[in-house]
Amino acid sequence: MAELRTDRLALRRWRDSDLEPWAAMNADPEVREHLGDLLTRDQSDASVARFQADFDRRGYGWWAVEVRATGRFIGFAGLDPVDDGMPFTGVEIGWRLARSAWGQGYATEAALAVLAYGFDTLGLPEILAVTTSANHRSQAVMRRIGMTRDPADDFDDPTAPEGPLRPNVLFRIARGARDRHSRRNR
């Protein structure tokens, strides 16, 4: 499995030492605000087991993210095939960070590394991102990494209950658009 490195972050394989802070994130109502119910420790641990199995099976997925200078685990970022039953197909980028890591540019930095891996290593022609229509912080990251939204692509998540988690937005970026965005922002 490839480890991704940025100036400040390492995106790496999950470790047993990540389980406790990951569980704390999944029990934090602010972190889970746009994701649904809080997870129990068993559910949180099971998610890491799935992440590791996905990496073993297909060679990519959700990396654990740590701050290189301190080795502190701060969340995850990665790529995952779009779930069955959604009104579109493809590979989705995502991230989730502990509240203590918010507002420091880590999500954008990790997402740019993941985009590069998706386009340059996996050869993906396009990468998608999905979030609730109310999740303005994630939408801001999507725009910062060069993704665009067509309101015609917005949809109601068929897996979400009625309420604020159902209306979703879809952002996209094609390989060529990422290259143009990178050149403009140098």
Rank of each mutant, 00 (worst) to 15 (best):
F73V: 00
L4N: 12
G103R: 12
D154H: 10
P151G: 07
F155T: 06
V141N: 11
I173H: 04
M147G: 14
A152Q: 08
A101S: 03
A101K: 03
W14M: 08
A110P: 05
D157F: 11
L115S: 10
D28N: 14
P21L: 11
R144D: 08
N185L: 13
A111G: 13
N135R: 05
Y117S: 03
R180P: 01
F119I: 02
V65Q: 09
D153T: 10
L11H: 08
M147Y: 13
E20D: 12
L19M: 07
A64C: 08
A113Q: 11
I145R: 03
A64M: 05
D56G: 12
A69P: 09
T6P: 14
M147H: 11
Q139G: 12
A113S: 13
D56M: 04
L9C: 08
Y60C: 05
G59Q: 04
H136N: 01
R144Y: 02
W14Y: 08
R137P: 04
L128Y: 00
T70K: 03
I145F: 02
N168S: 15
M1G: 13
I127M: 10
V82N: 11
W63P: 12
S182I: 01
I74N: 03
D80W: 09
D56T: 11
R178P: 09
W22D: 01
P167W: 02
A98C: 06
D157I: 07
L38P: 02
A2V: 13
H136R: 10
H34S: 10
R5S: 14
E66V: 10
L11E: 08
D16R: 05
L35E: 06
V114Y: 07
A111S: 14
S44T: 00
L97F: 15
T40H: 11
V169E: 00
P161A: 14
S182R: 15
T132K: 00
R41I: 03
A160E: 09
R32F: 03
A116S: 14
P164D: 02
A77Y: 04
D56I: 01
R178H: 15
L79H: 10
F51E: 07
R183G: 05
G105L: 03
A53W: 13
V91T: 15
A46G: 14
E126W: 01
A129N: 04
R175K: 06
A113V: 09
N135F: 07
T108R: 13
D45T: 05
R178W: 15
P81R: 15
S100K: 06
P164H: 08
R13D: 10
N168Y: 00
T108Y: 03
T121G: 00
P151E: 02
Y117C: 05
Q43F: 05
D42G: 06
R8M: 01
S47H: 10
E33N: 03
F88D: 02
E162P: 14
V82A: 14
D7T: 15
V65M: 13
A49S: 12
R15H: 12
D7K: 13
Y117N: 02
W95V: 02
A24Q: 07
R72A: 15
G75K: 02
L124P: 11
D84S: 14
A113P: 14
Q52R: 15
P151M: 00
S47F: 10
